[in-house]
């Protein structure tokens, strides 16, 4: 298989991911409640982490992918903090 085809497919997929992130952003802005927004942000950042990995492939710079895990972790922390705040009103309890 030609390597060129691989990069073509990956670039198309990257474009798809960019376009779906626009949809997520619409929900992020529109979202009527706080959990809605956080959910959209969540989906957006998981989208973004795949985007980073694909970009690392596409740019032929594997080291670009190092931001991926940190992003995932902090977004999860955001989830937990928001839900903790809504449920318990005090984080430390």
């Amino acid at each position: 298989m030609d390597v060129g085809i691989v990069y073509t497919i990956i670039s198309i997929v990257v474009l798809i991911y960019l376009m779906t992130s626009v949809l997520y952003i619409i929900r992020l802005i529109k979202g009527p409640t706080v959990p809605d927004r956080i959910l959209a942000l969540d989906a957006l950042s998981y989208d973004l982490s795949v985007f980073i990995a694909l970009l690392a492939l596409l740019l032929r710079r594997p080291i670009v992918a190092s931001g991926l895990i940190a992003l995932t972790l902090w977004i999860h922390a955001l989830d937990i903090y928001v839900s903790k705040y809504i449920e318990a009103r005090e984080i430390g309890e």
Binding site: D42, A65, L73, H76, I80, V82
Partner: peptide, 26 residues
Amino acid sequence: LVGTSIVGAIFILILAPTGAHSLARA
């Protein structure tokens, strides 16, 4: 890149449902 994406996949596999779960509860 292999290591990072696999570790990332594992993290997302564990964390995403948990996050969604706690958000749903909230």
